[in-house]
Structure formats: C-alpha cells, structure tokens
Design a protein around this nucleic acid. Sequence first.
DNA 1: GGTGAAACTTCTAATAA
DNA 2: TTATTAGAAGTTTCACC
Lengths: 160, 160
Amino acid sequence: MAKFKLDDTDHKILDMLIDNTRTAFTDIAKKLGISAGTVHVRVKKMEDAGFITGSSLKLDYEKLGYSFIAYIGVFLQKTSQTQFVMERINEIPFVTVAHVTTGKFNIFCKIRAKDTSHAKNIIYQIDDIEGVTRTETMISLEESINDKKRLMHSIFKDIN
Amino acid sequence: MAKFKLDDTDHKILDMLIDNTRTAFTDIAKKLGISAGTVHVRVKKMEDAGFITGSSLKLDYEKLGYSFIAYIGVFLQKTSQTQFVMERINEIPFVTVAHVTTGKFNIFCKIRAKDTSHAKNIIYQIDDIEGVTRTETMISLEESINDKKRLMHSIFKDIN
DNA sequence: GGTGAAACTTCTAATAA
DNA sequence: TTATTAGAAGTTTCACC
C-alpha cells in the first residue's frame, strides 16, 4: 500500500466522524461543499489504508455503576515472567489496559470497577498470579480526558 | 428518568454496535429475530437513558507515526496546586488522559508521541508547569487492550 | 482527483396487534 | 413490547468531467 497522506478535506471528514460515526455523508458533503460520493470515496480510502480501523460506541460506565478507576503497578520476581503474567492479567475481567513498562514497575494496568471492594477483589486476583511479588495501587480521584478530536488536531497540525 | 435495566436483547444489540456502529439495524434485527423497528426503539431508549453517549472512530495512531506511549507520574510542591496543574496539563497536546490520584503521585497522565525525542518535549512541558517538582516516566514497551466488548460482557454478567 | 443522478438500501415513525 | 408498512433519507455506483 502506497504511503497515503491525509489532506485537509480528509481531516475535516474525520473531525465530523470522530464526533459521531453516524453523521450522514450527505451532511458532511453539504458542510464541506463537496458531493456525498466524494465523502464516501475518501472514507473508504482511509479505511482501506488501515487508518480508520472501525467504529465504536461511547458508553457511560458510571451510569452502569462502574465509576471506580485505578492504576495498578505490578512487580515481578523475574522479568522473564512478563509475558506469562501479561496473559494472566488480560484474562481478568475489569482490567481495561495493560502495559509492559520501563521504570519502576514491570507491568502496569488500569482497572474499572464498581467500588473499592470490587476493586480489592480484582487487585487480589492480580496479586495471586504466579511470579507477582507485589502490586501498588493508585486510585483515580478525578479523570480528565483529552478527547480523540484534540489528539487528531495535534497530530494533524504536527504532520502538516 | 426511571432506572432502566438492560435486558439480554439490549445487550446483544450493544454487542454488535460496539464492534461497528454502522451495523445496519436490519442486520441486527435479522440476527436477533426481531424487527428493525424494535432495534431502533431500543437503541433510542439506551441513548435517551444516557447509557449510550455517542460513537467514535477507531483510528490507527501507529499508522500515523504515533506509536510511542508513556505514563508520567507528576509530583507537586503542594496538593493545593492540583487543580491548577491539571488544567495546565490538559492544555498540552499529546496528553491523552490525566488523573488526580492517591498514592505515590499527585497526578498521573498518559501521553502519545511520535518517538522518544517528541516524548521528551512533552515531558519537559509538564516539568515546566509551576508547582511541579518532578516527574517520573514509565515507557510502554507493549500495550494490550481488553476491548470494550469484553468489559461490557463482564459488566453484563456482573449485573445479571 | 471530483460530480450528479440513478438504483438500491436503510431509517424512522405511525399504526396496529 | 413487538411487527408491519411506507415515505423519507442515506449510501453507493458509474458514466462523465
């Protein structure tokens, strides 16, 4: 696949779809002063290039009662156990992301839980994995997200 | 708004839309053996209840050349500066999430950058904020994401 | 590259069960 | 709560710039 460069029109299309993937191509076309067919072709090109990999819903987990977020730093006996432990961690429900990291911790993960007691349960499951010597928990008191739109803007400004 | 409980059909609809928000309601209807109108009504109800808050694209940032992920722990002179520093951090491009946390760090954030030199630049911007005494960087060598679908399944199993 | 229009598919809301 | 229906709206293709 040839290296494919996004232009300003692609960027504007992305901008609208990032906010709402169901934005009608006809609406996008109207706003950008191009035809709906063109929007369709450009979106398809971005999909084919693997740049857009799909779409997903934004869900309100707090409304479902899962408002507890924590980060868990994991220490291992030996670094050679990293892959094994990563696999075990990824099997634990409510772990949302896991990273192998440099620095203080060997592995670092994020969990989303109902409350402290639910979180405790998840942390114990991590502690119980063979090779884990101990964990360190950082509870999130407040989360602020710089949304995708802003990141895309930064990237786009950076590229051009 | 009355407390609204998702049933198994809602769950299956979510499941398909989480994978692809543009899945045709007629396809969902066919698969679940209900009518497209019903799918429409249920999705609308979940939106009205605030449970579905929107939709967004999945983008491949690595393809754009932004494959460097790191977590930055931030130490402050005084905890009373937390809000001020959080606001400054949120103004820095390429910071994707920031948390006020208990434990070792006062603030904890995630950045996405092109490479180490780009990351260094971002970290220096954080270091430069008034009130920040020092930062600690953990570079992600490998990321593994437990996708939304799995989290939803865990939540759904947990609720019912 | 892009357009515009035709052909096709999907959405949506009202009605009825 | 669900099904049916039909008009409105959106998507996709294609011949032609």
